[in-house]
Amino acid sequence: MTTPTTRRSLREAAPSPAVRPGTGSTPVRARLRPGRILGDILLWLAAIAGAVCILLVVLAFTAQVTLIMFRTGSMAPTIPAGAVAVVQRVPASEIEVGDVVTVDRDGELPVTHRVTTIAPGAAADERIITMRGDANAADDPFPYPVTSVRTVLFAVPGIALIVAGMGNPVVLGSLTVAATTLVVWAFWPRRSGRSGVDVDGNGP
C-alpha cells in the first residue's frame, strides 16, 4: 500500500537550508569576509556623517547654529588656527565679559575674539563691545557696535581643511559617487557558490 504524499511529509523529506548536502548535519554558516566587514563599517560611518549634516541643517534653521573656521591663531591656544567652531547667534543683551564671540563686519571677514568690555549703545538692543584675541597683547583697534553676535559654543581643532574641502564641487561629486557605490555594493544580493545559500543564511 502506498503512503499518500502530504505537505508535511514533503517538508520532512526536504533537506534543511542550514545543512550542507552530503556532509551530514554540519550547518552552513555565512562567513564574514574582511571586505564585507570594511564595507559595513564605511556604510555606518557614511550614515553617521549624513545624520550629523542633517542635524546641522536643522540647527541652522531652528536655533541659528552654524560653523566658522579659524584661519589665524589670534585666539590661540584656546582656539588654534585650523579649528572649526560651532557658534550660535544671540542678542547683544546676552553678551558677558569673557565670552568668545564672532562679530560680522560689512565688507570684511568676521572677527572672533574674547569680549573685554561692554557698554550701552544708541538703541536699547545695541551694545558697544571691545574685544581681544587670546594671543594678542592689546584690544582690537576699534570697538564694535552690535545688536547680535555669534557666541562660540565649542571648537574642534585641526578640521578646517576637511570642512573647507567639503564645499569643493569635485569633492562633493566624488563623495556622492563613492557613497552611492558603497550603498549599492552593501545591499547587492550575494550567494555562496558552494551551497547556494545567501550570505545572511536564508535560502534562495
Rank of each mutant, 00 (worst) to 15 (best):
203 G>N: 09
13 A>T: 03
141 P>I: 07
41 I>N: 01
171 V>W: 11
169 P>S: 04
121 G>D: 00
203 G>I: 09
143 P>C: 06
83 A>F: 02
194 R>H: 14
19 V>W: 05
80 P>Q: 09
175 L>A: 15
97 V>Y: 04
99 D>Y: 03
59 L>I: 03
68 I>M: 07
40 D>L: 12
158 G>H: 10
194 R>Q: 12
30 A>L: 08
17 P>C: 13
80 P>E: 05
149 V>R: 07
85 A>G: 14
52 V>P: 02
177 V>R: 04
71 R>G: 08
187 F>V: 14
201 G>H: 07
68 I>C: 09
36 R>C: 01
54 I>Y: 10
4 P>G: 04
199 V>G: 12
141 P>H: 08
65 V>R: 08
117 T>P: 01
189 P>K: 07
201 G>M: 09
103 V>T: 13
160 A>Q: 13
104 D>Q: 13
187 F>P: 04
86 V>Q: 07
195 S>G: 05
147 T>Y: 07
42 L>N: 00
24 G>W: 10
11 R>F: 12
126 E>C: 01
165 G>C: 06
56 L>H: 07
117 T>S: 07
156 V>H: 04
18 A>M: 08
81 A>C: 10
116 T>N: 00
83 A>P: 01
5 T>Y: 10
37 I>L: 15
68 I>H: 07
79 I>K: 01
64 Q>Y: 13
147 T>M: 03
80 P>W: 07
40 D>Q: 08
76 A>L: 06
82 G>V: 04
91 P>D: 12
33 R>T: 08
106 D>A: 15
143 P>I: 06
181 T>Y: 11
36 R>G: 03
120 P>F: 00
122 A>E: 04
88 Q>F: 04
55 L>H: 08
167 G>N: 13
11 R>L: 15
61 F>A: 08
182 L>D: 09
63 A>W: 11
121 G>L: 00
95 I>V: 15
153 L>D: 09
71 R>E: 14
93 S>P: 04
27 P>I: 10
179 A>G: 14
167 G>R: 15
201 G>E: 05
87 V>E: 00
63 A>M: 14
23 T>A: 10
122 A>N: 01
